[in-house]
């Protein structure tokens, strides 16, 4: 592919990404405004009179026509101004930057754990389908999909925090208790950067239950998909040929069959990474985890328009970027795609 074609292709993909983000924002803007609600009244406080509510509405530009509000919002977005929260009257961008890393800590940890374990369990299940462990995986994967995430969280809290008292019930690392600096907003990373082992211990303990909850709610999908796609590959001619040539079974499974089976798994993992942002809402509520999920929960509860739009923006951009990254991974995994290129 020549340089011009590459640039054109990149421009095309980038335009699509922008279109998806714009469509998602516009749809959320319309949906949030067509639902009859008065967030200004909530923000004005108990007993607020009509004049006070009007004052809040004016201060936040909610008294202007909808179309003016929409174009003002789009114009502000281009300047990276996400507006102010109706509730806190603070810039939403500041809030997003504060809460996003706290959620990312959960998302990254959960994603890597369940991606690795999901694929590993899927391989074991496909290779040894009659094994007792595979039977357990079969049962637990159904259970994992069926159980609501908040319920799993509450159950883990009850067993490991309330009864056994091994782990903290709720909350994330309290920086002030350990006098450490907030470099990134991710407790574990900041504890390491601050070279504080006590803080690191507290940060790791705090993250175990919410991450376990997220992993348990996701792992069944990765396990089942890996198992089913790998089973198909293990029945292919090239596997039989390799076996006839005396190649070790584990080598065939890992280097031949799994590699070919991974494409749909990677697609699904990419989608699930985006889903995790949404999935953290309930987990953050149950575990009082002060991240983007909890921020979203409060924003949706109070119809706080600008945070709702900002969260939509973050989640959409994440989905779009991750999907693009996944698309880049395909040729690496599939030689046929590489050759076609």
């Amino acid at each position: 592919m020549n340089k011009f074609k590459r640039i054109r292709k990149f421009a095309q993909r980038f335009s699509w990404m922008l279109l998806v983000v714009w469509a998602s924002l516009t749809l959320t803007f319309i949906l949030s405004r067509v639902i009859p609600a008065d967030p200004a009244r909530l923000a004005a406080g108990l007993q607020a009179g009509p004049e006070q509510v009007l004052e809040v509405r004016k201060a936040l530009g909610l008294d202007k026509p909808l179309i003016v509000q929409y174009f003002t919002y789009l114009k502000d977005i281009l300047r990276l101004d996400l507006g102010d929260s109706i509730q806190t009257r603070q810039p939403v961008l500041d809030d997003i930057l504060r809460y996003l890393p706290v959620t990312l800590e959960l998302v990254f940890l959960s994603f890597f754990i369940y991606a690795i374990l999901g694929v590993l369990f899927g391989v074991l299940w496909a290779r040894f389908p009659r094994n007792i462990f595979s039977k357990f995986l079969s049962f637990s994967s159904i259970l994992g999909v069926a159980m609501p995430v908040f319920w799993v969280g509450l159950l883990l809290q009850l067993i490991f925090a309330a009864k056994l008292q091994w782990l903290p019930l709720a909350g994330s690392l309290q920086y002030q208790d350990f006098d450490i600096t907030r470099y990134t907003g991710m407790g574990i990373l900041d504890s390491i950067l601050s070279w504080n082992s006590e803080a690191l211990r507290a940060a790791v303990l705090a993250v175990i239950l919410p991450v376990t909850t997220l992993v348990l709610s996701q792992i069944a999908i990765a396990t089942r998909l890996t198992k089913s796609t790998l089973e198909v590959e293990l029945r292919q001619h090239y596997v039989r040929t390799a076996r006839a040539r005396g190649v070790a079974e584990w080598k065939i499974t890992i280097f031949d069959a799994l590699r070919n089976a991974l494409n749909p798994v990677v697609t699904m993992l990419g989608l699930q990474f985006g889903w995790l942002f949404g999935g953290t809402i309930l987990v953050e509520v149950v575990f009082s985890w002060p991240g983007l999920g909890l921020y979203s929960f409060n924003a949706f509860r109070t119809f706080d328009y600008n945070p709702i739009l900002a969260i939509t923006l973050v989640v959409t951009v994440t989905f779009v970027v991750v999907n693009e990254l996944v698309a880049l991974l395909y040729p690496l995994l599939d030689p046929k795609l590489r050759e076609r290129k």
Partner: peptide, 18 residues
């Protein structure tokens, strides 16, 4: 003054003395 949006969690924290 801590925030625990889930009342079940808050009740467990109360029960455990936190």
């Amino acid at each position: 003054l801590r925030v625990d949006p889930d009342i079940t969690t808050a009740m467990q924290l109360l029960s455990s003395g936190q």
